[in-house]
Design a protein around this nucleic acid. Structure first.
Length: 110
DNA sequence: ATAGTGACGGCGG
DNA sequence: ACCGCCGCCACTA
């Protein structure tokens, strides 16, 4: 439907395995710096997408898994991250600053 | 049409 | 460094 959602999904799909990013980073990359919440909404709507979106690699700026409740299970998000080598401790990604992947920095500033 | 809410983020106290 | 308030945008009651 809306191209914005597809952009968010496409950006999320660019996240390398074992790396993570934040809603705000994606929002900035898409030129909608003040619409971080919309990115979250797009993630919520990603189930409508025909493409599998690694929404578990997207967290808030603090590396907190605030959206895990929206997954099928309450701890699926953690296990997915753990299976990719990302250490999660009490809804908090360990070494978040080191695992952080900025699309604007890696893919180029829009 | 107005008000409240939310997978966020930045700024001020 | 921690806590709280405000701004943003789309959706729902």
């Amino acid at each position: 439907m809306d191209n914005f959602f597809e952009k968010v999904w496409a950006t999320a799909c660019q996240i390398p395995l074992g790396r993570v990013t934040s809603y705000g980073a994606i929002a900035r990359y898409l030129g909608a710096a003040r619409s971080a919440r919309m990115v979250g909404w797009a993630m919520n709507n990603c189930r409508a997408s025909e493409v599998r979106v690694p929404a578990h690699r997207v967290v808030n700026s603090k590396g907190l898994l605030t959206g895990k409740h929206h997954f099928q299970g309450s701890h699926v998000m953690e296990e997915l991250l753990e299976s990719e080598g990302v250490r999660v401790e009490d809804n908090q990604i360990v070494n978040f600053d080191e695992l952080f992947w900025d699309p604007a920095k890696e893919l180029g500033i829009h």
